[in-house]
Each structure stands twice: as structure tokens, then as C-alpha cells.
Simulated assay, not measured.
Amino acid sequence: MAWYVLRRLAVSVLVLLGISAVVFFLLHVVSDSPGRVVLGQRASPEAVADFNQRHGFDRPVVVQYVSYLGQLLQGDLGRSYKLNESVGTLLQQNAGRSAMLSLAGLVLALLVAIPLGVLQAVRRNSVVDRVATGLAYVLYATPAFLLGLVLIAVFSQQLDLFPAEASQSHSPWVVFTDPRSMALPVITIAATSIAIFSQYQRSSALDQLGQDYIRVARAKGLPERLVVTRHLLRNACLPVITLVGTMIPALLAGNLIVESLFNYSGLGLLFLNSLQREDYPVLLAYTLIGGVLTVVGNFVADIAVALADRRIELAS
């Protein structure tokens, strides 16, 4: 198992290096003169050139990238052009709130999707299965911003059950301390994930229901409830475990829309504001976070699946 983990870790590090290189060079192509962005269009060419020279932006791009990697290894993500503040500080101020929002949405999605997917498989082609599948397709096809607007219109404006704006508290635990204000953002985050997870769970459970060990369990006279909970559920959840890892960066992207829609101060809203200001160090750091979450999510999912089914480790 240790050798399997080391191999997966080595691959993850190489992927992260590739992501950092691609993002850095793309942003360099978009903005070949950070001095012009920071000082404005009315700044003189001399002032722009002096700014670029003082900050090392006049050096070859490869040299700049190597220098940037050295800063990353020291935990330095650079400095915001527009806010004149450390990017690391900005991320620390907003990461906790975004993480809790994503975590709440993910937990809600799993709590709903896993039982629902198993129920659909056990009652295949029933009314429950057909209705749930139809709703899943609708949710999956609905953009997050449109779903959020519908939820605001129905539950905030029509029924007056939840506020249209998320809580403005700076505490990362606001999702749990003020659930009423955070209900609509969490539901919006969870909705698309529920649609995806439930259909994966349904397909996996249907495949497992045809396996010999399920037939043997039923032949022994075990109640259907025990067949599902003791035998079916563990094996049927393996594809969903893998999917959770790949969905983590998608949740980060969903936060971008949801935080903007509900005016929730987090990484997503920070990214949108930085995009409008052309604050490239913040954009680079946010994109790298997405890459890290993708790699880490897949790494954790691989390890979790290997622990759940040791045959995967042996076959690797």
C-alpha cells in the first residue's frame, strides 16, 4: 500500500508542476506588461518600464516562472496589484468561508443522492425511479445561476422563508451558525451534485444487484434491508467515492457563481472582483488552487477506493 501511495503522490506532484507552468505562461501571454495594468493606461512608458524592471517583469518568462516556483516553495503567492496586499492573506481571509460552503453542499448532496440512487436501483422502472431520473436530468441541465434565481424568487420573494442574500458574517462557520441565511446558497451548490451522484449511484447499484454475492445473500433468506445495507451499499459506493474527488474543483467553480449571486464573501467573489480589476496574481493563485484541489481530490479518491477494494491496489 505504501508503494502505491508514493507512486500516486509522485504523479500528483508532476501534474501540479504542469498546471502551474501552463497557467503562468497563459497569464503572461494575456498580460505582457503588468506595469501597464497596475499604473493604468495613462501612465508614461518610462514609468511602466521602471515598474516592470523593479519587479522583475522585464526578465525572460522562463526566468520569471522559475522565480515564481521558488516563491511558491517558500509559501509566497505574490502580492495583489490592485489591493496592495499579500495574496496569501487574501486567500486566508476567504478560503474558510468558501470551504465550509462547499463542504455543506457536498455533505447535503451525498446524504440525499446515495440513498436516492440505491432506492432507484432497488425499485427500477418504478414511478419513483422515473420521477427521480427526470428531476436529475433537469437539475443537471439547469445552470447554477438560473437555479439560484429560481430559488430566490420562490423561497425568498414568494414564500418569504429564506433571505435572498447570504449572511455577511466573516466567520467561516456561518453556514452552521446562521443556517437560515445560508440555506439557499447551500441548496444551489448541492443541487447539481445531487443529480450527478444519484445517477452514478443508481447505475452502480444496478450493476451490483446482478452480482452473485447479492443472489447468495438473498438465497440465505436475509431481509432485503440487510442485503442493501450490509452487502450492496459498500460496493455500490465505490464509483461515487471516485466522483467526489473529481467534483471538488467543480464545487469551487460553483462557488464562483453562487457567491456572486448571493453576495457571499469567499474565494469565488474574490476571483470575480480580481478578474474585473485584472489583478493577475490573485487570478493565478485562484487557478492554482483549483488545480491543487483537482489533483488532491483525485489522489484522495484513489487512496479511498484502494482501501475499500484492495484488488485495485494489486492491479496497479
Rank of each mutant, 00 (worst) to 15 (best):
L238R: 00
V66D: 03
G134Q: 06
S198F: 11
Q64R: 11
E224D: 04
L256E: 02
A304Q: 02
L184D: 13
L151C: 10
D279P: 03
F24Y: 08
S31R: 05
I312F: 14
A166N: 01
P115D: 00
L159M: 15
V66G: 05
I303T: 09
R310E: 13
G266V: 11
V240R: 06
D58E: 04
R311P: 00
L184M: 03
D50S: 11
F57P: 02
E278R: 13
I196P: 05
V216H: 08
L90V: 11
L119H: 04
V87T: 02
K82C: 00
R7A: 14
I19M: 10
G210H: 04
V150L: 06
G148F: 03
P239C: 07
S102M: 15
I114Y: 15
K220H: 15
V131H: 04
P249G: 11
V11E: 15
V23N: 06
D302F: 07
D212H: 10
D32T: 04
S126M: 05
V22R: 01
A195D: 09
P185W: 15
R234E: 01
L77V: 04
V38H: 07
V30A: 14
D76M: 02
A144M: 09
Q201T: 10
F299L: 14
Q168I: 11
E259H: 10
Y81C: 02
V61T: 02
S171E: 14
T192V: 13
N263I: 02
A121P: 05
A315Y: 05
Q74G: 09
S156N: 14
S102K: 00
Y286D: 09
D212R: 04
F197Q: 07
G78R: 03
E259W: 02
G105F: 08
A95E: 01
L16H: 06
V282Y: 07
V305N: 01
T242Q: 10
A47Q: 15
L147N: 08
S31P: 13
L206R: 09
L269K: 10
G56A: 02
L275C: 00
F176C: 12
L233D: 00
A285C: 15
A95T: 02
G117F: 01
L14C: 12
S126I: 03
S203M: 05
R234Q: 07
A190Y: 12
G78A: 02
L146I: 09
S260C: 01
L146C: 05
S198Y: 05
V30K: 04
D58M: 03
L252T: 09
L111E: 01
L272D: 15
T242I: 01
S20C: 03
L16D: 09
P239K: 04
L184N: 10
G18N: 03
G254H: 03
